[in-house]
Design a protein around this nucleic acid. Structure first.
Lengths: 193, 193
DNA sequence: CCTACCGATCGGTAGG
DNA sequence: CCTACCGATCGGTAGG
């Protein structure tokens, strides 16, 4: 229903917003700055998005959906728990730094959204992202690859280990991914065999 | 040199600031709000602290020093790597929720401080906090409790696992600490013995 | 520590 | 009467 030029300008607005969002979060970015970066007037933003809350929510959901696509793509070809997680970690580590930083900050900054927007983002995040990772762990326990643990907690711990790397540039993607997964699977303790 | 009443008011200012900081970060808190909460005028804040940057830095360092004290206290009585980390994790998990949330947010929000303040905080954080945890891992590798790994990376991964719990209330401190350390030491994989 | 303010910038909206 | 905007300014609030 929307014309091509409208799609283009919306995309450019969200790109500018995400760039500024990564720099300083919700309160560290102004509608003026977004407008300036896109090269349109500030009121023009309000033609495309009801208000700041609406714009930032659209930007965050846009980014989240890209991650969900990455997740789904990585899960198609995997044959083991390790391979599944490896696919996810490597594809995320290989993203542009700004894209990784964005999803990292999203979690911190959702508090600044309205209640409705926050709920909407969290619902999508929970259903399409967290739950898919949970399912990987559940399957790993069922087929005996993993020991029995609280699935929610393990998911929490796994994401915790990976998340700090969302903030900074990553040098050797393969190497970092290998070490991280090695510790997560086998632990840091000396093996007494 | 500072009078008792000045100490008291400074403490009350930092308490109010930390409460508001946890709620919305650096840009989500105003000098007016702090003044209101303390029950003084806004300009009165500027008598005690040069500017917002100065006040927030003082508050963050105050909090960080409490954590450093916790760390040092926990390390005195430990006899193994596991015990050292257990002591740290449990004492942190046992803190009031707001105190944990504060140090969690500190890491996210330092970008909003001036370059000097950010450097000052990061230096203290690195020297008195990160380096002490690094040393635990180094010793664990030397005495054979841990396998050989990149110390900085392991420290990063360990803090990553623990950090997400800084944001939310913790039910069973002992239980959560045990599971977290168990996974970090032995991994999630089924043991093939 | 107060009242009384400032330059600037915030998110959002007016008429055309 | 539509769309995609503009220059100017609104009421409030930021740090100082």
């Amino acid at each position: 229903m929307t014309s091509d030029s409208s799609q283009t300008i919306k995309k450019r607005i969200l790109d500018a917003a995400s760039h500024l969002f990564v720099r300083g979060g919700y309160n560290g970015l102004s509608m003026r700055e977004i407008a300036e970066m896109v090269g349109i007037s500030k009121p023009a933003l309000y033609y495309h998005y009801k208000d700041k809350d609406d714009l930032i929510l659209a930007m965050l959901i846009d980014c989240l959906e890209e991650y969900i696509g990455l997740l789904d793509h990585g899960l198609k070809t995997s044959t083991s728990t390790y391979e599944s997680l490896e696919g996810i970690v490597q594809s995320i580590f290989a993203l542009p730094d700004e894209k990784r930083a964005l999803i990292y900050m999203a979690e911190q900054e959702v508090v600044h959204l309205s209640t409705q927007s926050r709920d909407q983002f969290n619902r999508l995040y929970q259903e399409k992202f967290i739950n898919k990772i949970k399912r990987i762990f559940e399957e790993g326990m069922v087929c005996g690859e993993l020991r029995q643990m609280d699935v929610a907690l393990v998911t929490h711990l796994f994401l915790g280990m990976v998340f700090p790397f969302f903030r900074h540039p990553i040098g050797n993607v393969k190497n970092l991914s290998d070490i991280t997964l090695s510790i997560f699977f086998n632990g840091v303790a000396q093996q007494h065999v």
